[in-house]
């Protein structure tokens, strides 16, 4: 079976005229769109008429471990309503006050989309993404179903803007709604800590996989928990190690991670594939993340050595 197929375009999507035909037969109206601002300028990110100036109270931040989105350059911001604070009493699940807004911008040379998350009422969040106009003056609400191939992330590889249901696949599956503003993501353990290699790999899996692979969401029955917890610090008890190292696949033959052997490890194999039926993550990317793959390979090799955790890291952090 071809496990490694890089940069292959989703055949079901480009060739699936039949799928389209079937979809067209449905011709159902999409579920009613919530009351979303029509333009990014209405979400309060920047000062009216000037996308280069952040509005008062909007603060930039950067998570420690980032999601790979085919190489998009990203910027992120948060705004809490005046006089409110995040409830951090549970370090594994921060509670954000009603009125919290977060934005994340995706750029390939120029701005392409800015995603928006708003806590509109206790426990209710709105998800939307805005497509930047050519002139860069404002961005417009993207259609509910997203847009395929708005741009190319690199020659020949289309970049797809996700639909609103796709937002929920990642932001509504156990860890969310907010994924990158958390104690793990904002911690500032020094880079050269002895556990850095393992930590970097587990951080990568946390940011790229744990929003689906955790012990709380719909995939919990799979028993693969790639979530990094604040207390873990790369300890052997980290769920990612106990549920992956030497653990047989749930479906079919194979092992999740074979210490010392990246190419025999399903985690590596599925990250190395962009066949729609194999690839991990299954959405949000059309291109293998070579540096991320190498980071995971280095880590898997290290886990096969006598003292994996203490082997000094040789790689810089993934993009």
């Amino acid at each position: 079976m071809p496990l490694v197929a890089r940069n292959r375009r989703t055949p079901a999507i480009t060739l699936g005229g039949l799928a389209l035909l079937l979809a067209a037969c449905g011709n159902a109206p999409p579920p009613a769109a919530p009351d979303l601002p029509a333009r990014l300028s209405e979400t309060g990110l920047f000062e009216p008429g000037n996308p280069e100036r952040l509005a008062a109270g909007v603060t930039p931040y950067a998570p420690r471990h980032v999601l790979w989105s085919d190489g998009a350059a990203k910027r992120r911001w948060i705004r809490l309503p005046a006089g409110t604070a995040i409830d951090t009493s549970d370090p594994e699940r921060w509670r954000f006050p009603v009125g919290t807004r977060l934005w994340k911008e995706f750029a390939f040379e120029r701005r392409v989309e800015t995603r928006f998350l708003e806590h509109v009422a206790e426990g209710r969040w709105h998800f939307a993404t805005y497509l930047w106009r050519e002139d860069g003056k404002d961005a417009d609400l993207a259609p509910e179903a997203g847009v395929r191939g708005v741009r190319e992330s690199t020659a020949g590889v289309p970049y797809d803007v996700p639909g609103r249901r796709d937002c929920l696949a990642c932001h509504g599956s156990g860890l969310g709604p907010v994924l990158g503003y958390s104690s793990v993501q904002l911690s500032d353990t020094p880079e050269d800590a002895p556990l850095a290699r393992r930590q970097a790999a587990l951080g990568y899996l946390h940011a790229n996989c744990a929003h689906c692979h955790n012990d709380a969401g719909p995939l919990r029955t799979l028993g693969l928990d790639l979530r990094l917890r604040p207390a873990d610090a790369g300890a052997p008890t980290s769920a990612a190690l106990t549920t992956a190292l030497g653990v047989a696949l749930r479906q079919g033959p194979g092992t999740r991670v074979v210490p010392g052997e990246p190419a025999a490890s399903a985690v590596w194999q599925r990250m190395a594939s962009r066949l729609p039926t194999r690839q991990m993550p299954p959405l949000g990317t059309n291109r293998v993340h070579e540096r991320g793959l190498e980071l995971i390979a280095e880590w898997i090799r290290a886990e096969g050595r006598a003292d994996p955790a203490l082997t000094p890291p040789t790689l810089s952090k993934g993009k």
Binding site: A12, L22, G26, C170, P218, L219, L283
Partner: peptide, 21 residues
């Protein structure tokens, strides 16, 4: 969502999308 297990890969034809719609 027409995705395997709700959040995974897109489901292939001829599984009809109309039910969920």
């Amino acid at each position: 969502n027409m995705r395997h297990r709700g959040i995974g890969r897109p489901l292939l034809p001829p599984m009809p999308p109309m039910y969920g719609q």
